[in-house]
Nucleic acid binder design. Structure first.
Lengths: 206, 206
DNA sequence: GTCTATAAGAGGATAGAC
DNA sequence: GTCTATCCTCTTATAGAC
């Protein structure tokens, strides 16, 4: 019994290593350019071994997405239980977190255009489950912030949600990072400002 | 002389057809998923013929980008000469135009992560020339709007510029379109609002 | 410059030994 | 479940006739 459990732990650890490598490579090169060979080489195993864990490249990408969604959910739960900030502050904290993940090269931004990948994801029950879990959490805060007038009440809540997801892999962050003229903190605060206050900024009289 | 000119016109027309097809397919599937075979089939010519016009897939993508940059430049020039609106209104008009192009399925959004493509683009003189031409035009309006307090003076101008380019291929537009719950005009005005006024909206007291 | 045909190679996925 | 070796399809790019 204990022996089996140990063996399972080893397998789980290997699977985690695979997903972590895939996660990083997806963040770096994107789904279409990343190859399964690269992932296997990065982990240090044979490609055939990888295919014993994940039956396809799409399945591997889904696992990476689930991983980051789980991390997001854990962060959200921690926020919810440890802080007593307003809804808008919670949302900004989540946005800040996603940008930090992106700066760390750990945000697997999948191309929205690859239809084969999309088809695999919308049919993936676990992935959809995690995605909805995160969406519901954020949706609660969004509704609360709109009621409080902290978020524009005239915008549909889904626009808020989609925008937050989109900003989690906004290419602007990579461009600013590549320009090398700003610190990570400056980049994050700047993008937080453009996301929540817009290009016009918060100081207005109209 | 006239005969040669006519023949050149025919060649130019064919080249335009190739670039137009590539443009549409790039908007639909993205650079990595689009194949040269598809483009050739869409135009109705053999692949080898296409390679007589464009020496590589990257060159084809660059031509598509140059095409849309030229259209943008033409729109900007028209704006500049026919209207007497404020700088911020001009910038919003350009953003509105890019979203219309995106909704029409004519915005070739190239993946920021494909390094082979990036290398080809940064080495492409004509492409860089057009990109800088558009950037300079927008940069003038950005500086003017910042001086007038219409755009947040505390944000670096490059952030404004990068953000405008990024919103021209923002996946949020595709998500809202796919949800089918909004008209094209609603989508555009909503995204204009989130871009310039942020998720918090323009009505603030702070 | 356009075509048919094909080279050349990358990449996803699998067979079969251990 | 892990390995080596291989299959097979797809894709970029070119050769050579017309």
């Amino acid at each position: 019994m204990a022996k089996v459990s140990f063996r399972e732990q080893v397998l789980q650890a290997r699977e985690d290593a695979i997903v972590e490598s895939a996660n990083r490579l997806l963040a770096e090169k994107g789904f279409d350019v990343m190859t399964v060979d690269e992932v296997a080489a990065d982990v240090g195993i044979a490609k055939a071994s990888l295919y014993k864990h994940f039956t396809s490249k799409e399945e591997l990408a889904a696992a990476a997405m689930i991983r980051v969604l789980d991390r997001a959910l854990a962060f959200i739960v921690t926020l919810d239980t440890t802080t007593r900030a307003s809804a808008i502050e919670q949302l900004k904290a989540v946005a800040r977190w996603t940008m930090q993940v992106q700066l760390a090269g750990e945000m697997p931004s999948l191309p929205a255009q690859n239809s084969a990948l999309r088809a695999a994801l919308v049919a993936h029950k676990v992935y959809l489950d995690r995605l909805m879990a995160v969406s519901e959490r954020l949706g609660t805060w969004i509704a609360e912030a709109q009621r409080a007038g902290q978020l524009n009440p005239r915008l549909p809540p889904e626009v808020m949600l989609y925008t937050l997801f989109a900003r989690a892999c906004d290419p602007v962050l990579g461009l600013l990072k590549a320009s090398g003229q700003h610190s990570d903190d400056e980049i994050i605060e700047t993008l937080l400002s453009t996301c929540f206050d817009g290009l016009c900024g918060p100081d207005r009289r109209t």
